[in-house]
Simulated assay, not measured.
Amino acid sequence: MASDTAAAEGSSLVFHPMDQFIVKPLFGDGAVGMFTITNVTLWLFLAVLAVIGLMVIGTSRRAVVPTRSQSIAELAYGFVYKMIEDVTGKDGLVFFPYIMTLFMFIVFANFLGLIPMSFTTTSHFAVTVILAFAVFITVTVVGFVKNGAGFLGLFWVSSAPAALRPILAVIELISYFVRPVSHSIRLAGNVMAGHAVIKVFAGFAAITLVSPISIVAITAMYGLEILVAFIQAYVFTILTCVYLKDALHPSH
């Protein structure tokens, strides 16, 4: 009986979907410190290199008949430019370099994370929180610099009944400071969940009887994750534009 139990335990499928998100030193096996070069560092650096490769090197030989890299860069440029113009108006176009960089970085970080054996940096809140707080601080500073005390009009719902305005002001103020939290969790949570599900299906693929089903499921999930990688970059960027619009035009 004991041998049967041991054999059953030995043959059981053991996999840990969350292991893929562990931060590890790139060199050696020591503890991770503030200045330790980790797998996160490597893949963040590769994402930056990928953006530079497409937007700088890929467009360095601009031609009337564009190359594939130039075409992709021009499509991305036009896509983000139109997004900013539609959401914030002409006033927001001055922030195009920042928002374009943000969009391209998240897109490449998401797509690089889909490479087998890679590391998905945008699945970590440490990365997405920094991006979200950078947007939050930028928007807040722009709001006060451009509008002065008039930026506080963002929290005062003048169209509401007078008795409700103080209550709504408190709610608006709380929701404003919650923005970086929801902004960061939305990106990291969606990316992490998708990768974890793929890992679960990959673990089940080791079972012979369900292997074909798992392979189909993994393929479908991988295709979905490709779509999610772009959509989450788009959502993060368009929310940045919405927040910027509030800073430029704070009146309700």
Rank of each mutant, 00 (worst) to 15 (best):
H124P: 02
T101H: 08
T128W: 06
T140A: 05
S118Y: 04
L187E: 05
L154V: 05
P116G: 14
V181L: 08
V145S: 08
L154P: 01
L93T: 03
G189K: 03
F201R: 04
T101A: 11
P161E: 10
G113F: 01
V181Y: 13
G148E: 09
L154E: 14
I174P: 12
N147W: 12
D86H: 07
I115N: 04
Y81I: 02
P116M: 01
I99A: 12
D86T: 06
R179F: 07
P97A: 03
W156H: 13
G189V: 04
L152I: 10
G153H: 13
F103K: 00
R179A: 03
V191F: 04
V197T: 15
V135S: 07
P166T: 06
F151I: 07
F96V: 03
T88I: 07
V191E: 07
Y176V: 00
A196H: 11
G148Q: 13
G203K: 09
P161F: 10
K82I: 00
N110D: 02
F155Y: 15
V191P: 03
S159I: 09
V139D: 03
M83V: 02
A160M: 00
V135W: 05
S118G: 10
M100W: 15
T122Q: 11
P166F: 06
A160I: 00
E85A: 10
L93Y: 00
G150W: 12
K82R: 08
N190A: 02
S159E: 10
N147F: 11
I137D: 03
G143K: 11
G92Q: 08
N190M: 07
F144E: 05
P116S: 13
K82A: 02
F96C: 00
I99P: 14
I99R: 05
A202C: 05
F95W: 08
V94W: 01
F111E: 00
T128R: 11
A163L: 14
D86Y: 14
F105W: 08
M83C: 04
F136L: 08
A188T: 13
P97I: 02
F144N: 13
I198D: 02
S123T: 11
V127A: 09
F144S: 03
T120A: 10
V157M: 10
K199G: 05
R165F: 07
T120C: 02
Y77A: 00
I115Y: 12
F133L: 14
H195Y: 12
A162T: 06
K90I: 08
G89L: 11
V107I: 15
G92M: 12
F125W: 07
A76S: 11
F144L: 13
W156N: 10
S158R: 14
T101N: 05
F111M: 15
H183T: 08
I130R: 11
G78L: 05
A132K: 11
S159N: 13
T88P: 00
G113T: 08
G89T: 09
A188C: 08
F204K: 05
V127K: 11
E172Q: 12
K90E: 02
A109L: 07
L93N: 03
F136Q: 12
H195N: 15
I198V: 14
L154D: 10
R165C: 13
I198W: 04
R186K: 14
V181G: 04
R179C: 01
I84V: 15
G143M: 10
V141G: 06
F103A: 12
V200K: 14
I171D: 00
Y98M: 14
S184W: 04
Y77Q: 02
P166S: 08
L152R: 03
G78R: 11
F151Y: 13
N190H: 14
I198M: 01
